[in-house]
Design a protein around this nucleic acid. Sequence first.
RNA 1: GGAGAGAUGGCUGAGUGGUCGAAAGCGCUCCCCUGCUAAGGGAGUAAGGGUUAAAAGCCCUUCGAGGGUUCGAAUCCCUCUCUCUCCGCCA
Length: 425
Amino acid sequence: MIDPKLLRQSTDEVAANLARRGFEFDAAGYLALDERRKALQVETESLRKERNSSSKAIGKAKAQGEDIEPLLAAVQELGDKLDQNEAELQAVQEELRDIELGLPNLLQADVPDGVGDEDNVEVRCWGEPVEPDFEARDHVALGEALGMLDFECASKMSGSRFAVMRGQLARLQRALIQFMLDVHTGEHGYVETYVPFLVQSQALVGTGQLPKFEADLFKTTTETPFYLIPTAEVPVTNFARDVIFEADELPLRYTAHTPCFRSEAGSYGQDTRGMIRQHQFEKVELVQFVAPGDSERALEELTGHAEVILQRLELPYRVVVLCSGDTGFGAAKTYDIEVWLPGQGKYREISSCSNYEAFQARRMGARRRNPESGKPELIHTLNGSGVAAGRALIAIMENYQQADGSIRVPQALQPYMAGATAIYG
RNA sequence: GGAGAGAUGGCUGAGUGGUCGAAAGCGCUCCCCUGCUAAGGGAGUAAGGGUUAAAAGCCCUUCGAGGGUUCGAAUCCCUCUCUCUCCGCCA
């Protein structure tokens, strides 16, 4: 959520910033509605004040044994007017909030302009894509030939966009997760967490998936609906809901391995082959809570933490900064890490690291006590994949494939694979 | 799943219709005194919002959540949620 004060006072600047995303903000409409809110609120509060003082007077008069009948009559009409005003005010406030919840975050000044992913800007590149001296296969061909990756089997129970893995391939994914968690907790100062995979709507409003992107989520039909988490960002970031941190508690760094569930509405036809885009996948997530002045530096660090994983796995990748049109709803700035996939002959997203600044914090009341003023202020939140396990698995299969269809195990993972150096069919 | 108890400020805990946003204690901050390892005295100490260019001040809201009764609700009524204890059941 954008600071409502900023929305009122610098409406044109806000509108111009949002326009960089291709988002059209009806500034005039918003301001008109806010004017109505202001008038109603001032009036309602003064009515309440009147009622409060009258009630006190009645109490006093009664205590002194005076006749309170005339006082009661005077307050009576006031109550009706107040009820009406309160109802009207509430309606206007809800309307304003709906608008505010639907506005994307302001972009940082250094986010490049652009419309789609073709306009993202490469920031750096690591490793050299190696051309094998045989025809590179993609992970589907490799996995199926090994007898360890089975989409048909998955479709029997769950339909499309699910996978079944068996044997050493299933174990390799587990090894990856274990490895990533060990690096982040042991070397990058993250606290490992275990969190619910089902959350209620207010948690998703807090992180920004709701109310706008309900169609991308799986939802239960229980009386109070639960949503399957689309990312561990949702439960972990909500740790900070309604919390006022002491200044010396920050920064806080949390990591979690969870499955992620996405209905991927509107993605039909894209990546229908293989494990790139699934309804269910495993991910290790990184989340940070930092002081408002520290988030830009924290984003660089967090992105670096995700990069370390790919470096240890010796997977070539590049980092791109997302352009204005491609940056996600709540993010002020996002780096995507794209790993080289020989089977596709291109770089594909394996991690997305974003600085949300106060966008999520404002939605969920995440604050810290400012050490100078002693007053609460909104913190900044960040998160990034560190990294997506399913896609990392694909990257390993395709980058470590041998001419005979076997797959070498990256050195960093061998300790997690009982010393195995390769996977054979 | 069954039975009971509870939810108040950073914490403990009082408060059953009227100056209660809330006693007291603890904690914390500042000041004073004292002087030596600890003690004494005083003051202050919730959050959100409105008004303001901003601040001060003033005002509104909030005692688990939502609704109701009332001129007036932490206090009365209804619904829900959560926590604790016991029983049952389970991983």
